[in-house]
Design a protein around this nucleic acid. Structure first.
Lengths: 214, 214
DNA sequence: CGTTATGTGGAGGAAAACCTTCCGGTTAGG
DNA sequence: CCTAACCGGAAGGTTTTCCTCCACATAACG
């Protein structure tokens, strides 16, 4: 990505993208850019110099996220012994990405192809292709129930990925993903990780959990 | 609720709450109140007269939503033959409520008890109590897998309820809920409704689906 | 059908939030 | 040690949002 930058400039650029990613997730893509700058520990000027407008920043963040998603999907397909486990790995991994509302906000950009940098549209196609492969194979292997399609998987992933501002936390999400996977499995089910969340956990979960928004 | 209002005032009040509910879901709780007024087909003045500030409106919307959730949970428990089906009905029904981010935004209000109108905190307790009953019974009946707890159900519901701005649509969500339920079921699984979403559906789903925001 | 308390709409001014530029001072890199 | 590249944040301009106020409308009632 961005090259020919001085070392410090490069470092700051990455800090900004990281901060933006967090804030977009926490507070939506409308956060004041000044806030992004503050969290990144740089001045507004620096931010504006590197990203002329909000969209540029949004694209950069999206690029980064999509890159990770592509990597997740393709690595899963490549490294797992069979399609079913690849699918499991993909779904489990997607949770950690915490893309949030990004995919939706990114849509408009996916269609303006001719852009500097990696082609977002092409990256998305790669993810879709990988998932399609997994599904087809997993169903052929008799591991994935036959009555689901790619769209179902997509929705499941969207739900996992679109984390509410008040996030259930990694362990809780992990359990939920396993429940989903068990629902997808053609044969038998596997034990859930951890212990069941009990009434107290529920109470804790339903208790104050408003993000640091004001 | 609000009584002693003239017929037209009452009608407008309800229109405003309904419009706010939609807009809060579509665009977040920060929508300009003027926009709410416009969608409700009333003037800003009317809105401000009825709801002194944004919080008042938020409370009203939350009250309405929570009322429906309580009703869903208690009706399910009352009318279904057994606990498992009650739980199914509850989860299926929660999707339709489309509470969105409301629960999170509502949290702060749940703690200021002494309030005009119904006690939000008490309503929430009723929902929790109903779900706890369902879970306990369903597990005792051997219908619900033993290794899940109330918290897991809560997270599942949250995911269903917290619909992304670009919503997957009722039929797709219905399928997903069934997958979840199959993942929760102790014994066998039931057929999913409708037909599997195929590659085309996926493409359609991942295509432009940005809400009418600007 | 007339009266009146209650309710309505939206223009408009004040305030806040946000964007963006600009420049004196700093630092990486050779 | 020199310089091109970079940094921070104050300040000014613009847009968005809030919320009040009042002339006009209409539901309710005898």
């Amino acid at each position: 990505m961005e090259k020919g930058l001085r070392a410090d400039a490069r470092r700051n650029r990455d800090l900004i993208v990281a901060a933006a990613q967090e804030l977009f997730l926490e507070q939506g893509v409308d956060v004041p850019l000044e806030e992004v700058a503050r969290r990144a520990g740089v001045g507004v000027g620096t931010l504006y110099r590197r990203f002329p407008d909000r969209d540029a920043l949004l694209r950069a963040v999206g690029e980064e996220s999509l890159r990770r998603l592509v990597d997740l999907a393709e690595t899963a397909w490549r490294e797992e012994p069979d399609a079913w486990h690849a699918l499991c790995r993909f779904l489990r991994g997607s949770v950690a990405l915490r893309l949030g509302v990004l995919p939706a906000k990114l849509e408009p950009h996916l269609h303006q192809r001719m852009r500097v940098g990696p082609d977002l549209h092409e990256m998305r196609q790669r993810v879709i292709a990988a998932v399609l492969r997994m599904i087809e194979r997993a169903q052929a292997d008799g591991a994935l129930r036959a009555d689901v399609g790619p769209g179902d998987i997509a929705v499941l992933m969207t739900l996992n990925v679109y984390t509410p501002p008040a996030l259930p936390g990694e362990p809780a999400m992990a359990r939920v993903v396993e429940i989903m996977l068990d629902g997808l499995r053609a044969d038998r089910r596997s034990p859930l990780p951890g212990t069941p969340l009990d009434g107290d956990d529920l109470r804790r979960y339903t208790a104050v959990r408003v993000p640091p928004t004001e």
